[in-house]
Nucleic acid binder design. Structure first.
Ligand SMILES: [Mn+2]
Ligand SMILES: [Mn+2]
Ligand SMILES: [Mn+2]
Ligand SMILES: [Mn+2]
Lengths: 217, 217
DNA sequence: CTATATTTTTAGACAAAACTAAAAATGTTT
DNA sequence: AAACATTTTTAGTTTTGTCTAAAAATATAG
């Protein structure tokens, strides 16, 4: 499996979660920052290898074999992110690009030993679940802060957007995984929220709240 | 710089040590397990980028720029080997192939943090020196066991051949970096040696002795 | 239901990195 | 120095992954 094939599989996998229909050529091209014609070519190759199911004009979906492969790439990506943060003192906004490279290293022993070295973490630095060596993903109870009712006490457990700019905003506001959040009030006009984060008052826009995962305490 | 370009640079670098003349096309092809015609093509490209000096039929040599690049790849390779052995419990005969992949990961921060995490090691698991972040290589006093005189007490500090089969042979004979070796006698006929390794008697062929680096105690 | 817009696929081109086969240069013998 | 052997380069293909431009299929609107 080539570097490029792996990237396509991963993108198709991510587009598939919460999307039961076939993934469109355009959606893949968009995510890969490439052109639809390139996607069509690659999808044909992946179909040839039985990693995806593909019918012309009907979009594409992962086969079980393709899903397994994709999950293993996600496992590697997230384990490496944990390594970078926990062992090498990277901050959570610096790890993604390096993990994009490390996820392609081929060695089952390496990844299982790394898993053990990190003490079998179940979530990466952004709160995303880490598949185990059999590809099983423990699902975590979580909801968006924007969809949480008033006067609830919750704990921050993940981010939906893990762009540098969002993560750095959270750092600045001292919001991290594990922070205790209480929703004081919601502004009707723009859905912005008044919060208490670790007992300190903070007001955030709906866009922020719609990218923070929390769970009831 | 592509994966392939990096591999060529590294091979040319290794062929260059202890070889002041231009490196031949055939030597590179041999080391890369590719064909001379492929080497000619790549060498032209590297010359274009001023990473090597090349004149038709005259062989090739690294420019200072090319040498710097090559040394950084070697640095990464050896640091990752240390990581695999020290932190993930790989044995010294298992690390090379994985390090061949890891050496191409591009992130200066990653490699400097890894260096720090490993406590700035100066040698890899095979006794080879690790260039520092400026490309400087501390040179170690060492000689081949086969060229060491009788009744000398020495300590094992490295291997010349780091193939799996040689390393596993050493494991079996309980020879490791740091082992104390005394040369008892040398057989005239085949240059084989009678040794004491950590006070236990052992007889080794010249081929073994010619691949073990030692330093006088 | 037909016209228009959008999406997707095809056809053809290109760059990177490899190869084979043949030509050219260099090295070695007699 | 000529003949032969070896090394190196050139010329022409191939595979992988990308692209543009044009054609075909599908979706949307009037
Ligand atoms: Mn990531
Ligand atoms: Mn992540
Ligand atoms: Mn190695
Ligand atoms: Mn080594």
């Amino acid at each position: 499996m080539t570097y490029s094939e792996e990237n396509y599989l991963k993108v198709i996998y991510h587009l598939s979660t919460g999307n039961s229909k076939g993934i469109t050529t355009n959606a893949i091209a968009n995510e890969m920052e490439s052109k639809p014609s390139s996607v069509t070519d690659m999808v044909k190759k992946l179909a040839e290898k039985e990693l995806v199911a593909y019918k012309k004009y009907q979009g594409v979906s992962l086969t079980e074999k393709g899903r397994q492969h994709a999950v293993m790439i996600v496992r590697k990506h997230r384990l490496w992110e944990v390594f970078l943060v926990e062992k090498l003192d990277f901050s959570w906004d610096e790890v993604h690009d390096v993990a994009e490279q490390l996820e392609h290293i081929k060695s089952e022993k390496l990844i299982d030993k790394l898993d053990e070295f990190l003490d079998f973490p179940t979530e990466d630095p952004h709160g995303d679940p880490i598949p185990d060596r059999n590809g099983k993903i423990a699902k975590m109870e979580k909801q968006l802060l924007s969809e949480t009712s008033l006067n609830t006490k919750v704990i921050c457990v993940g981010v939906k957007d893990s762009s540098s700019s969002f993560l750095q905003y959270l750092d600045k506001q001292q919001i991290a995984l594990g922070s205790a959040i209480e929703i004081i009030s919601r502004e009707h006009f723009d859905q912005s929220l008044s919060l208490k984060v670790n007992d300190k008052p903070l007001s955030v826009s709906n866009k922020i709240a719609a990218n923070l995962f929390v769970k009831p305490l």
